[in-house]
């Protein structure tokens, strides 16, 4: 089965889901699409640049809290404005954080991003008056493309207009990321990932390119975070906690960071598998962890690795 055919099939199924699938499963697609946007960005950093961030929940949180502030404090309900503001704030926060983090690689980069993520988590947890602390902030229903849609019951709003809106954002984010990774910029990132010293000697500004990748990935995560808000209707610090960062790294590994669509597939499998395991066994974390570990062991290239054609085995020399 060709990749394009699978992609068309997946897109078709996603478009038709609200018409044929049970409401609950359609609702589960909303966090999937939000995470998928964030993961496209994370994989620019992880899969294409070779930097593993353990603090990207920071930017999910920035996006979600931007939406919560705009809707509940400033009464700005336009989702387009929210997404634009989330992207801008994501970039604004990522610029200095990235400038500090990309000076390091491997575990040092990972630990620094984790530290900044926890700084943000502590900030939203401690500043009660500003952020609502552990109680969080309401993310009021946003208007979509200028239509308020307040008359619709919330579930109808979510499985109808908001679903297709999220899908449109995901498709747009995918197309933009597709262009990025196939541009000269994307090729430079891959060169940096594979051999930073050689990239430097070729005249590529390694630190600058890494910084750009960091900022772009943060923008994607912030947009994903803003999309996560409306289904829950409340934004709280757990969204910015390190376990969220761990989850999205794991989704990427699960789907396969070597593939463009791998992380998206990882998000889908993670969310539906978690949903199923949670309902079946009381100690679901144990079982869920074991299942995920087994998948990673069986498919080290991630689930998308099954689709990637393996290079033919070279005949051994006599």
């Amino acid at each position: 089965m060709s990749g394009r055919f699978v992609l068309a099939l997946a897109l078709g199924a996603t478009v038709l889901a609200p018409l044929v699938a049970p409401t609950y499963h359609v609702l589960l697609m909303l966090p999937f699409m939000a995470y998928a946007v964030a993961l496209l960005g994370l994989n620019l950093l992880f899969g294409y640049t070779g930097l593993v961030s353990f603090g990207h929940a920071l930017f999910l949180g920035v996006g979600a809290y931007t939406g919560a502030f705009l809707t509940s404090v400033f009464n700005v309900r336009s989702m387009e404005t929210i997404l634009a503001a989330a992207a801008a704030l994501g970039a604004l926060v990522a610029a200095p954080v990235g400038a500090l983090c990309v000076r390091y690689v491997k575990i040092y980069f990972g630990m620094l991003t984790l530290a900044f993520g926890m700084v943000f988590y502590t900030f939203v947890l401690k500043f009660y008056r500003l952020t609502g602390g552990d109680e969080g902030m309401p993310f009021l229903r946003p208007a979509l493309v200028g239509r308020s849609l307040e008359d619709l019951p919330k579930t109808d709003y979510l499985v109808g207009p908001y679903y297709y809106y999220s899908l449109a954002v995901l498709v747009l984010a995918t197309l933009v990321m597709w262009r990025i990774v196939r541009s000269p910029f994307g090729l430079c990132l891959k060169t940096i990932r594979d051999n930073p010293t050689k990239a430097e000697t070729l005249g590529i500004g390694v630190a600058r390119y890494r910084w750009c990748a960091f900022v772009i990935s943060a923008v994607y995560a912030a947009v994903g975070g803003a999309l996560l808000g409306p289904p829950t209707g409340n934004v709280d610090p757990t969204l910015a906690y390190w376990t969220q960062s761990g989850n999205i790294v794991f989704m990427t590994l699960l789907g396969g960071f070597a593939s463009f669509f791998g992380p998206v597939l990882g998000a889908f499998v993670f969310i539906y598998l978690q949903d199923w395991v949670m309902s079946v066994v009381p100690f679901w974390r144990l079982i869920f962890g074991a299942i995920l570990a087994a998948i990673v062991i069986v498919a080290p290239g991630g689930l998308a690795g099954f689709w990637v054609r393996r290079p033919p085995v070279e005949a051994s020399s006599p």
Binding site: L28, P31, G136, T232, G233, D236, T238, L239, D275
Partner: peptide, 9 residues
């Protein structure tokens, strides 16, 4: 568990 996950449950 978390607000997001509990709303889903």
């Amino acid at each position: 568990s978390s607000p997001k996950d509990t709303v889903e449950r």
